[in-house]
């Protein structure tokens, strides 16, 4: 089933690549760097038991783009604490995503994402390979842009005995460029849901993101 979805995504990407039109406004090299805070809310369902954790992470992201191609990097680390009794965890996350803007409003992305959770000295490290489809819209002004991105975890590896059974997610963001300075402010919402252990365990991670960045036009 996972292979069929992967094949479908590759076919869609190829189709869009061949139907791509010139993007006149995206010819040059573009950079963007941002830093900010992430408020994480993790909801875990494990064999009928529910657990909620939340906490702040700090980090940043950067991107570079030339023409239709781009590369986005993101790194953050922080900690989450359970809402009731239980043990908290440190969370570290990073990703490197290649993007191809097939149309002005449509981008295809692919790349690895790593997530480590350290609980009581034990590190659980996930490596996901994700495919993403993103769209964007200018909201009235060219400086106000809304992004929406769906992601599909094509594969997942973990260093423990957990097994990966699929995952998907969503990224939504509103960004606003200041007119006088090459600064932008981003407000985002991320959610991932990972199924493991044959579907008995699901973990949904939400992030409320607030970023301040420098640069124009290369955000991913």
């Amino acid at each position: 089933m996972t292979r069929c979805r992967s094949l479908a995504i590759v076919c869609l990407a190829t189709l869009l690549a061949f139907s791509a039109q010139p993007l006149n406004s995206q010819g040059g090299l573009r950079f963007s760097v941002a830093g900010g805070g992430y408020y994480n809310s993790i909801s875990i369902q494990d064999d009928g038991e529910n657990q909620s954790l939340s906490g702040f992470s700090g980090g940043g992201e950067g991107s570079v783009a030339i023409g239709r191609l781009g590369l986005g990097l993101r790194y953050l680390e922080g900690s989450v604490s359970p809402s009731g009794s239980g043990t908290g965890a440190d969370v570290v996350e990073g990703e490197a995503i290649l993007s191809f803007r097939a149309l002005q409003w449509l981008a295809l992305k692919f790349g690895p994402r790593l997530r480590s959770t350290i609980t009581s000295g034990v590190t659980e490290r996930w490596v996901f390979w994700e495919g993403r489809v993103g769209t964007r819209a200018r909201l009235g002004s060219p400086r106000v842009v809304g992004n929406l991105e769906f992601l599909l975890m094509l594969s997942g590896d973990v260093n423990t005995s957990e097994s990966f059974n699929g995952g998907q997610g969503l990224r939504g963001r509103l960004s606003w460029e200041l007119s006088e300075l090459p600064l932008w402010i981003g407000l985002g919402y991320h959610i991932d849901r990972i199924k493991s252990r044959g579907g008995l365990r699901t973990e949904a991670t939400e992030q409320l993101v607030l970023l301040i960045g420098i640069g124009r036009g290369a955000r991913y």
Binding site: S43, Q45, S52, I191, T202, A204, E206
Partner: peptide, 9 residues
């Protein structure tokens, strides 16, 4: 839809 049974914020 992505996380139907999760307690979302």
């Amino acid at each position: 839809i992505i996380a139907p049974n999760a307690e979302l914020s």
